[in-house]
Amino acid sequence: MQSLIGTGVALVTPFKKDFSVDVEALKRIVSHQIENGIDYLVVLGTTGESATLTKKEKELVITTVIEANASRLPLVLGVGGYNTAEVVEELKTRDLSKFEAVLSVSPFYNKPTQEGIYQHFKTVAEASPIPVILYNVPGRTASNMLPATVLRLAKDFDNVVAIKEAAGDIVQAMRLIQHKPEGFLVISGDDAITLPMVLAGGSGVISVIAEGFPRQFSDMVRLGLERRADEAYKIHYGLLDAIDMIFEQGNPAGIKAVLKTLGLSENTVRLPLVTATDDLASRLESFTKNAGIRSEANV
């Protein structure tokens, strides 16, 4: 899965001020990623506020991204949830021909045991016609998918090809890298420790901060993959404050504030999320402008 090495971006779903999906803004955001060096795009992940979208809106987002991308970058689709049967039904009925892989989050709310997580993903892997990227994010799911469970899945199913590891635990990530099967990718899901994970042998990132700062963050990941650590860390520390800020009041409120500064979209989010406060938005605007970031839409 060489196409999943490097920097993937978890796309937001931009909304107009009336909370409807902003198709034109989504096209601009996709183009901004492509023009600034991102390696692949992730559609309808958590950052895309997929939990608040109707089925019709999800189809609109998928169609818009496919058309705007025009086969230029690989695409990954978020297909996950806490109802295994429902996830399987989507995998069996959705046209996945335009996607490189699915990103499937570990079941949330239910808090399954490690055996329950294994059996869930066993069922998902057997149902999926394309490769599966596991997604471990205990801060959202309330359960941690342990390395032993991940490695068991990776060894038992050829189409389980990667994990987006977002536990925020560098030691846990290193255990995965240490024991993973050949060809299995350990992808960072935590922007702040992406570079240490890459230098430890990780394969890149599925990022939020890169959506607002695609050139800088993707350059950092490439330098890390090339083992040019000193150069990579200059970029890392240059963006570290922004990474803290975009998650300060929840995701994607922070990154949407950045995208508004760039002139790419409104900063609207849907309840139960709320927009970034004026104070946070001002700090992000100042950081973005001082960093010299701009979009082609703003030129």
Rank of each mutant, 00 (worst) to 15 (best):
M1K: 11
Q2E: 13
L4Y: 10
T7M: 06
L11V: 12
K16C: 13
K17N: 14
V21L: 01
D22T: 02
D22I: 00
E24S: 13
A25Q: 11
K27Q: 14
R28V: 10
H32W: 05
Q33S: 01
Y40A: 02
L41P: 02
L44N: 05
T46E: 14
T46C: 12
G48Y: 08
K56V: 09
E57G: 08
E59Y: 10
V61G: 00
T63Q: 15
T64L: 13
I66L: 15
S71G: 14
R72Q: 15
L75V: 09
L77N: 10
G80D: 02
G81V: 03
Y82V: 05
N83W: 09
F99K: 04
V102Q: 02
P107L: 00
F108E: 10
N110H: 06
P112G: 06
Q114K: 07
E115I: 08
Y118L: 12
H120A: 05
F121I: 01
F121Q: 06
K122Y: 12
K122M: 12
A127V: 13
V132M: 13
V132N: 14
L134R: 08
Y135D: 15
N136K: 14
N136E: 15
R140H: 15
A142Q: 14
V150E: 06
D156Q: 04
D156S: 07
D156R: 04
D158E: 10
V160M: 00
V160F: 03
V161C: 11
K164M: 07
A167E: 08
G168F: 02
D169T: 09
V171S: 10
V171H: 12
Q172Y: 04
M174V: 09
L176Q: 02
I177Y: 02
H179A: 11
P181E: 04
E182S: 14
G183S: 08
L185Y: 03
V186A: 05
S188F: 10
D190H: 01
D191L: 03
D191S: 04
A192G: 08
A192D: 12
T194N: 07
P196D: 06
P196C: 03
P196H: 08
M197I: 10
M197D: 01
V198W: 10
G201K: 03
G201V: 02
G202I: 00
S203T: 03
G204F: 01
V205M: 10
I206N: 00
V208T: 07
P214D: 03
Q216L: 06
Q216G: 00
F217P: 02
S218T: 06
V221H: 05
L223P: 05
E226G: 10
R227A: 13
D230L: 14
K234D: 06
I235H: 02
H236D: 14
G238L: 04
L239N: 00
L239K: 07
A242T: 15
I243W: 02
I243H: 00
D244R: 13
M245Q: 05
M245G: 05
G250Y: 11
G254Q: 05
I255F: 03
A257S: 15
V258C: 11
V258Y: 04
K260I: 06
L262A: 11
G263R: 14
T268E: 09
A276V: 03
T277F: 07
L280H: 07
A281K: 04
R283S: 12
R283F: 14
L284Q: 00
E285T: 13
K289L: 14
G292N: 09
G292I: 05
I293F: 00
I293M: 04
R294E: 08
R294Q: 09
